[in-house]
Design a protein around this nucleic acid. Structure first.
Length: 494
DNA sequence: CGTCCTTTGAAGGCT
DNA sequence: AGCCTTCAAAGGACG
């Protein structure tokens, strides 16, 4: 485990942004947190297989030794201060002194095509990219990236290895920390163009799928949403553990718009953030002319800047089917449509409001990256159980490791804030209240929650024992139906 | 189909 | 200031 040095000129400014951890189960967490990731995984697997966990207190090192005491100034406070400071400095145009060394609020005028005709990154774009994403090594090409691959523990600053892979120093678990933020990152990867902004994208590509692809190109359809999914290469991890050579093979969600040969139509669409600027009015026009109306992404899915941000979820507004009106006379149709229009006018207007999702926090970013790994190694599918494991692992991370995610989350928020200046998390509260009743939530009784913990050990990942007698669903969610022998007594008797 | 479960963190509202 | 609530992701389970 890398020791923390208190200081050291962290350009990311992450060292002083660690948060204090919750004290719930802290004792047990401290006990388990010093396990190496491998050991951790081994415990998970063996406990899952054997269902006979006997030792969750096998380690004694204190997490506190590894981790400095909680700071009085929380990360949240710090972040907020920084954001406020950033907002103050952001007076309209270029900004001079970025709140974070690597995250200036500079928007270059045209990122539509940051690449030069010869395929290299334009100096302007390179400057921008370096300023905006300091982790990205846009100056150095694949040679250095390959070097990074060779020397996984390079102490040099993190630099990008592939479009989705950031190398982080000091990784104890992965020699190369392939930091894929999303398994849904929309990517049109030109074989020779590695887009350097991609690593920070965490939002779903669903928001960028411009309607349905032509049937003959339609690969998979999400059974839940009905939204066509891009064909997935079976060998490719959903979390993009991509090598530089492999990324070019990744199909883009908009791959059906990309000609089979030649340059992709959506070069600028490789990234849902700045590079997505290419989807502007002209692209709308192009789409409208090429595809049926329902396939064309609606304007309201675009940000005011023309950026179809992945955090935007455009509700599927059902098209009025003219077929269903066949047989009715025109006046009836008109009247009906008028009534419908009147009745649902407000509702439609509300529905048309794009749903801007919250930016992901550090833990969410971590979950996105690690979920697939845990699922694969722990043979669990239940997200609730997976998340428990991930929560434990999150606490087991070193401060440095967590700092990476905090930093990324901070950038996510910054970018989100830039793209949606007026957006508030509160907006999503209202969004859920007006439309569908979403969730939630039974109030947690005092003491409820993790009380399953005292009665028998969790079979996975040396989780604390479970004691909650009042929440039978927890055992179900936690262990699944096929492991009912792990359910607590009250749950089993139900 | 909608909600629950489960995790942490961010953010807003209320006291 | 501190507490509470909601929502981000994920997918199986359930009513």
């Amino acid at each position: 485990m890398p020791q923390l040095n208190g200081g050291g000129g962290d350009d990311l400014g992450a060292n002083d942004e660690m948060i204090s951890f919750k004290d719930e189960g802290e004792q047990e967490e401290k006990i388990s947190e010093n396990l190496s990731a491998e050991r951790d995984l081994a415990d998970v697997k063996s406990s899952l297989v054997n269902e006979s966990e006997t030792n969750q207190n096998s380690s004694s090192d204190s997490e506190a030794e590894r981790r400095p005491p909680p700071r009085s100034e929380t990360f949240r406070d710090k972040t907020r201060e920084s954001l406020e400071e950033a907002a103050k400095r952001q007076d309209g145009g270029l900004f001079k002194s970025p709140p974070y060394p690597g995250y200036p609020f500079i928007m270059i005028p045209d990122l539509t095509s940051p690449y030069l005709p010869n395929g290299s990154l334009s100096p302007t774009a390179r400057t921008y990219l370096q300023m905006k994403w300091p982790l990205l090594d846009v100056n150095h090409g694949s040679l250095q990236s390959r070097q990074a691959l060779k020397d996984a523990r390079s102490p040099s600053p993190a630099h990008i290895v592939g479009p989705f892979c950031l190398e982080f120093p000091g990784q104890s678990d992965l020699s190369l920390h392939q930091f894929q933020l999303s398994n849904k990152v929309p990517v049109v990867q030109h074989p020779h163009h590695v887009h350097p902004l991609t690593p920070l994208i965490t939002y779903s590509n669903e928001h960028f799928t411009p309607g349905n692809p032509p049937p003959h190109l339609q690969g998979d359809v999400d059974p839940k949403t009905g939204i066509p999914r891009p064909p997935q290469h079976p060998d490719i991890s959903p979390y993009y553990p991509l090598s530089p050579g492999a990324v070019g093979q990744i199909p883009h969600p908009l791959g059906w718009l990309v000609p089979q040969q030649g340059q992709p139509v959506y070069q600028g669409f490789r990234h849902p953030y700045p590079t997505a600027l290419t989807v502007n009015a002209s692209m709308q026009s192009f789409l409208s002319s090429r595809f049926p109306h329902h396939m064309v992404p609606p304007h309201h899915s675009l940000h005011q800047t023309g950026i179809p941000h992945p955090a935007i979820v455009t509700p599927n507004v059902k098209q009025e089917s003219s077929h269903s009106d066949i047989g009715l006379n025109s006046s009836t149709i008109l009247y009906t449509l008028h009534r419908k229009h009147q009745d649902s006018k407000k509702e439609d207007e509300k529905k048309k409001q794009p749903h801007i999702k919250k930016p992901l926090n550090a833990f969410m970013l971590y979950m996105k990256e690690m979920r697939a790994k845990v699922v694969a190694e722990c043979t669990l599918k239940e997200s609730a159980a997976i998340n428990q494991i991930l929560g434990r692992r999150w606490h087991a991370l070193t401060r440095e490791e967590q700092a990476k995610y905090y930093e990324l989350a901070r950038k996510e928020r910054q970018l989100h804030m830039q793209l949606y200046p007026g957006w508030s998390a509160r907006d999503n509260y209202a969004a859920n209240q007006q439309g569908k009743k979403k969730k939630r939530k039974r109030d947690k009784q005092p003491g409820e929650g993790n009380e399953h913990r005292e009665y028998f050990p969790n079979p996975c990942l040396s989780l604390p024992p479970i004691t909650d007698l009042s929440a039978p669903k927890k055992c179900r969610a936690r262990f699944g139906l096929d492991q009912q022998n792990n359910w607590c007594g009250p749950c089993s008797s139900l």
